[in-house]
Design a protein around this nucleic acid. Structure first.
Length: 536
RNA sequence: GGCCCCAUCGUCUAGUCAGGUCCAGGACACCGGAUUUUCGAUCCGGCAACGCGGGUUCGAAUCCCGCUGGGGUCACCA
């Protein structure tokens, strides 16, 4: 096999689609697997205004997942430039060659005319073929009008009326046949001299020596045009491999950012939006700036692990064998194979992603969790930033005692809440453990049931005194303390434990009670119980 | 509508190319049990699929034909 070179060619849209990321991943994987190169090329022929801004989220997504390219923006390479907007000379030369070989022609028909032709065909229910009026013009006439600067496009001449079939040997779909003789002549150059996607792609894939074009199946219908273009230009075409596109959860419809409204009602997608509702407000992200679950950015901001996202993405349409689901990146690279890519579209499954996430989160060392969680605590002003400063001084929610909250506090917080954190952003669900003693909210339903109801107040007062007098304040001692208390008072453990939990955390549920008390420490426990008692 | 693709548990999939070992395997979700001060986590167990109809064959999830269903794409977007 010749050197493997794959590419991903996003257009600068200002966001990175999760489905596009999956396509990029497969390209990256295939290149890595075969010791080849992965090229990033920017498809900006359509000229964008602030390209830097539109590109930033794309680069960021690749960096986050650590899928770096061997050639492309920033790193450069021998086949640059890697922005199509800077490669117009190449496209122009190829166009001139096609024109000279009479494999393309200048079409002087105004766009309205082509549109009218198309609509007429539609009305009469016949296959639309563009009318080649300009082909009737004499070469001199064409030259004269072109030189006079008369607006026109350049169209590639498709074989017409020959009943010609073209077979593409797709690496995933196998042979796919097209009736090439009743396809309209595609425009390859706009009136302003800029190339169209189908053309620029062919020219660049050749020049950049791309060996395998791995892309989503939605591009299948472009393939005969590109194959013919390669042929006309005298290229050996690359291998085409059309992977199934990523569908919306539980459906076969292509995942699309335009259908976000619909996804809000999709039960499988629901949890993603709920997660956003829970986490983003605490990070101070305004509602209109929230990343949505169709974008890669969403997963980064919520606090998913790159390894989990890659694991999930790789399993959409590809499998290693009949039983392996959990795979780290190296395992996937070592086993990736186009032959094991399936043909039918596959829904993106948030539940499955979460199970991968849970698995990989569980394997993290506590220090890694601390590092992952810290930015969230800082953003929510529950911990100082790296310089020891609070980003914003918010007198109300700030806990003076915590200004110099040591890293060890976060460490013990994570020891306490451990596996309850599925994504890093979940740490904010436990903000009540870090907020000032008078700053967290009580779950009123739980408060009524567990604290206000007799005999809870009396028990709470009694147990408060035990806590105040306790010799040791570690979980084991506290447990012994409470058990002794319960026996003495001849009550059930549940009677007091729930009262203490609600009084001290405001929550009806949470981590182990005694561990929680130990984490908070005596002073805070007493202060919180006093606060609860005071609001009876 | 034209062209093209696809079709196994609710979901992601293995098995299909080389028909029997598949009354179809794994994972997620779901349900039940164990454990537990709560929630969660964990461990056990369970439910659950070859779209339909014809062939070919001793034998078909696997091969052939048809149907049905789902989807992609039809721009001077990418």
């Amino acid at each position: 096999m010749p050197a493997v070179r794959t590419r991903f060619a996003p257009s600068p849209t200002g966001y990175m689609h999760i489905g596009g990321m999956r396509t990029a991943l497969f390209n990256w994987l295939f290149a890595r697997r075969h010791g080849g190169q992965f090229i990033l090329r920017i498809d900006d022929t359509d000229r964008v205004r602030n390209i830097d801004e539109a590109l930033a989220p794309i680069f960021r997504a690749f960096q986050w997942l650590d899928l770096m390219w061997d050639e492309g923006p920033d790193v450069g390479g021998p086949h640059g430039p890697y922005f199509q907007s800077q490669r117009f000379d190449h496209y122009h030369n190829a166009m001139v060659a096609l024109l000279a070989a009479r494999k393309a022609f200048r079409d002087f028909d105004p766009p309205e005319r082509a549109k009218a032709d198309r609509e007429a065909a539609e009305r009469e229910q016949r296959t639309y073929l563009n009318v080649r009026r300009s082909l009737e013009l004499s070469p001199d006439e064409v030259a004269r009008r072109a030189e006079a600067g008369e607006p026109h496009v350049v169209r590639f001449l498709m074989p017409r009326g020959e009943g010609r079939m073209l077979t593409i040997d797709d690496a995933i779909l196998g042979p796919v046949e097209f009736h090439v003789s009743n396809m309209p002549d595609p425009v390859i150059m706009r009136g302003d001299g800029s190339p169209l996607y189908n053309f620029a792609t062919v020219v660049d894939d050749e020049l950049m020596e791309i060996s395998h074009v791995i892309r989503a199946q939605e591009h299948l219908s472009n393939t005969p045009i590109q194959a013919l273009l390669h042929e006309a230009l005298g290229h050996v075409p690359p291998v085409f491999a059309h992977i199934p596109y990523v569908a919306a959860p539980g459906s076969k419809e292509k995942l699309s950012k335009r259908k976000l409204d619909k996804y809000q009602k999709n039960p499988l997608f629901q949890k993603m939006f709920e997660q956003a509702d829970r986490i983003f407000p605490k990070l101070g992200i305004p509602e209109n700036e929230r990343p949505d679950p169709v974008m890669v950015e969403y997963y980064e901001r919520i606090g998913y692990l790159p390894v989990a996202v890659i694991n999930a993405l790789a399993r959409i349409g590809w499998s290693l064998d009949d039983k392996t689901d959990i795979m780290d990146r190296d395992t996937i690279v070592a086993n990736f194979d186009l032959g094991r890519v399936i043909k039918s579209p596959a829904g993106f499954d948030p539940d499955k992603l979460d199970s991968f996430q849970q698995h990989w989160m569980g394997r993290l060392a506590i220090e890694e969790k601390v590092a992952g969680v810290l930015p969230y605590l800082v953003a929510a002003r529950l911990a100082p930033d790296s310089s020891g400063q609070w980003t914003v001084d918010s007198g109300e929610t700030r806990d003076p005692a915590a200004v110099h909250r040591p890293r060890s506090t976060v460490h013990s917080l994570l020891t306490l809440i451990g596996k309850r954190i599925k994504v890093f952003g979940d740490v904010l669900d436990f903000d009540y453990l870090l907020l000032p003693d008078d700053g967290f909210a009580y779950d009123e339903t739980a408060f009524d049931k567990r604290v206000r109801k007799e005999p809870a107040p009396e028990l709470l007062r009694g147990f408060r005194e035990r806590l105040a007098a306790a010799e040791a304040f570690d979980a084991a001692s506290l447990e012994a303390l409470m058990k002794a208390f319960v026996e003495e008072r001849r009550v059930k453990l549940g009677d007091i434990i729930h009262a203490v939990r609600v009084a001290v955390t405001g929550q009806a549920t949470g981590p182990g009670m005694f561990e929680t008390l130990e984490f908070l420490g005596r002073d805070k426990c007493l202060a919180r119980i006093d606060r609860a008692l005071a609001r009876l």
